[in-house]
Design a protein around this nucleic acid. Structure first.
Length: 84
DNA sequence: TTTGAGCGT
């Protein structure tokens, strides 16, 4: 299950993102998208979880939750190649 | 090489 996470704090790191979701289930990988020039976070990222039910639970629990004083957005990620 | 909606260096 690929998960899209947005509205993250610019100081957020991959470890912070993974640690957030690991609290709700097993995280396969977590990645913040960093800008090429600034080297800073773009404010969003992706989390991959092996267990779909844990992923869905994490989405509902972490969506619109407060992280680092910021209200984050957690949704199912869209495939880059095809539509739903 | 930007600061707040969005879908990947």
């Amino acid at each position: 299950m690929n998960i899209f996470v947005a509205s993250l704090d610019y100081g957020m790191t991959n470890e912070d993102l993974q640690d957030l979701f690991e609290d709700y289930g097993s995280v396969s990988s977590a990645k913040i998208i960093f800008d090429k020039f600034t080297g800073r976070s773009k404010g969003f990222g992706f989390v991959e979880m092996d267990d779909n039910q844990e992923a869905d639970n994490a989405i509902e629990e972490l969506n619109e939750s407060e992280v680092n004083g910021r209200k984050i957005v957690v949704k199912k990620a869209r495939p880059k190649d095809a539509a739903w």
